[in-house]
Design a protein around this nucleic acid. Structure first.
Lengths: 210, 210
DNA sequence: TGTACATCAGTGAACGCGCGTTCACTGATGTAC
DNA sequence: TGTACATCAGTGAACGCGCGTTCACTGATGTAC
């Protein structure tokens, strides 16, 4: 194998780790399949031999895990950004829902790994029971709580947040799994779902009449 | 390999086909993973050598496809049974939703293959765009149409059916993917979701006051 | 300023594994005469 | 009623494949004296 990538200088070995993570992520996005992200494929893309990967990652699982980890961070940041800056707490929640679906559809294979994969293959850090304490979910519960405090929501915050999650997940995951179904335009579908949630879960705001 | 299974008598070779289908389905349910359903594993369970499989199935994909096919039939039958015999069309729809989730949770790995798998790996017969014309989905649209005819629903039937599907799918698939999340009791979650749909999508019936 | 040496970033070749699949075959069994 | 034969239900051994991973190594480079 001819060296396509110039060797890092002494002390800069960690550079390769970053390149490996980027390559693995690219492969995941381009091929749309976890199976295609083999150690060999990642190594080839980076321009390095397969054993080099093991200088930076204990095994394949750890590599994929770290790829997801970065994605999770971005996921949270994005939801956070889109959910803040709204005066109406219900609007903030709807904006978060929109952002959730949007992000999932932008990174379908990441979403698949994070939320559609087999539970027993999921990296430890993202095990189901930990998710509820993850900052993203906590933020959602917080946003829901604001609606509760404003007297705009019926049930308790944790339960309503769970419900919201299942609904937005439904849209996201089904669009990912069945992209060729005769869907209405995505924006229309999303707005209808959010409208349904709003009518079904929220009481009218102060400036509306019941 | 010692013959664990007595050879079928002449003319009864098709018997093995049935046994293979049953074994493959059992493996799918027990291991909970499509990957575990290898030709070798199926053959071993039946008590036959791997090449025997190829007397009845062209390749591995066809075998898995036929396993799903049978499951789809049962899926449809179950929904049909649970959805019929209701005087109120909205109640009929809610019963179908309940049955949908219940069935998915009873056969999680089948559900995974049918509705959570990669679109390009899905057997031809269940490709996304065909699904909309599948009898199960048509039946759902029909049930929704009855609600429309009774003046109980806002939007058009096809769109409302799609919406209902995404919502029930959300509950089912997330419970399958994240079984250890601190969910409320399943029945509670399901009823809350269906209530939300009812309040968000339906107008009150004639004997209720708006 | 020169040289020996430890360190670091990678390489090259090979390992065992389980997989789907193929191919030539065997031996029991029903059927024709 | 007996026998030759075609057919059918499977077997046994092997194929090539790509995979994750290991192990002994190489050669450039910074550092100590």
């Amino acid at each position: 194998m001819s060296p396509e990538r110039p060797r890092s200088r002494r002390g800069e070995g960690a550079q390769l780790k970053e390149e490996i993570l980027v390559a693995a992520e690219e492969l995941l996005l381009e091929t749309g399949s976890e199976d295609e992200v083999s150690i060999r494929a990642v190594a080839e893309r980076v321009g390095v031999t397969p054993p080099s990967i093991y200088r930076h990652f204990a095994d394949k699982g750890t590599l994929l895990f770290e790829v997801c980890d970065r994605q999770f961070d971005r996921f949270h940041e994005y939801l956070d950004a889109k959910g803040s800056g709204h005066s109406d707490p219900v609007e903030a929640l709807k904006a978060t829902g929109r952002a959730y679906i949007e992000f999932g559809l932008s990174y379908p294979e990441h979403y698949r790994i994070m939320f559609m994969g087999r539970s027993d293959l999921t990296p430890q850090q993202y095990e189901d029971h930990v998710l509820a304490e993850h900052e993203s979910f906590m933020a959602l519960v917080g946003s829901v709580q604001e609606c509760v405090d404003a007297g705009r929501i019926r049930t308790d915050a944790m339960e309503a947040a769970t419900l919201l999650w299942t609904v937005t997940h439904g849209v996201t995951s089904l669009l990912i799994a069945k992209p060729n179904f005769p869907w209405p335009p995505v924006e229309v579908l999303v707005e209808h779902v959010l409208d349904m949630v709003e009518h079904g879960l929220f009481t009218p705001g102060p400036d509306e009449t019941g």
